[in-house]
């Protein structure tokens, strides 16, 4: 399979995503410059973390107007895979591929640390290699990861099993203590209704190797490969 990692001005996890998909799980991968318009040859597009356009105006608010985004939306509409991590998730909500929005963290501070995630739905194309209810240790690193959706959107998310990850503690308890940023109902990651677009605040690309604090991120990349085979 082939990954494409979009590079916006200000992306800074682009190389990390490239490294993991190319060197760790050893798939084809290429960078896609934000001014490019053709993304046809890739199976899964990654919108990496970072500060696209310096977070000017609002996180993700300018990146959504980048030339490449039109093709990303078309790619998603065809049912092909899009993975938005951190700033990528913020861009996906800004461009309307995913519902809701990401506000400033509850404590108004940037937070970088390992957190636990409970896999709420393991039948998606991004989580099919995870056990039901599996607890993953994956780091977060963001200042604006406080997920919010209105009542209607939230109901729909639940009805369609679109909530994929929730923040929890080591034992899997989901409550305000295990909520690092104030996200609504501890939501850490969601998919679109069709299940081919995932947005998540935690960084799976940061925990795929032995030397890192966890290897749980691999589950997501493995699931993606699995879903294509």
């Amino acid at each position: 399979m082939k990954y494409g990692v979009i590079v916006f001005p200000g992306s800074n996890c682009d190389h990390d995503c490239f490294w993991v998909t190319g060197n760790v799980i050893k798939q084809d991968v290429k960078f896609i410059w934000h001014k490019e318009k053709n993304v046809n040859d890739v199976d899964c597009i990654i919108l990496p973390g970072g500060f696209s356009y310096g977070d000017y105006l609002r996180t993700g608010a300018i990146a959504r107007f980048s030339p490449v985004m039109e093709s990303v939306i078309k790619h998603a509409e065809k049912g092909k895979l899009v993975l938005g991590i951190c700033n990528g998730f913020q861009i996906l909500t800004e461009c309307g591929l995913l519902p809701g929005t990401l506000m400033r963290n509850r404590d108004l501070r940037f937070i970088c640390k390992d957190v636990y995630l409970s896999v709420e739905n393991n039948s998606t194309r991004f989580t099919n290699c995870a056990q039901e209810g599996q607890i993953l240790s994956i780091p977060i690193a963001h200042g604006e990861g406080n997920y919010y959706a209105n009542a209607q959107e939230l109901t729909k998310l639940k009805e369609n099993n679109q909530i994929i990850f929730r923040y929890c503690d080591r034992e899997g308890k989901i409550n305000s203590y295990s909520n690092p940023n104030g996200s609504l109902e501890n939501i850490a990651g969601i998919v679109n209704k069709n299940g081919n677009v995932l947005g998540m605040m935690p960084h799976p690309e940061r925990c795929c190797e032995n030397m890192m604090s966890s290897m749980d991120g691999i589950v997501i990349f493995d699931s993606i490969i699995n879903s294509l085979n």
Binding site: W19, V20, F110, R206
Partner: peptide, 9 residues
């Protein structure tokens, strides 16, 4: 924890 100390993996 306020610094991204993991980016670049």
């Amino acid at each position: 924890e306020q610094y991204d100390h993991m980016v670049m993996t």
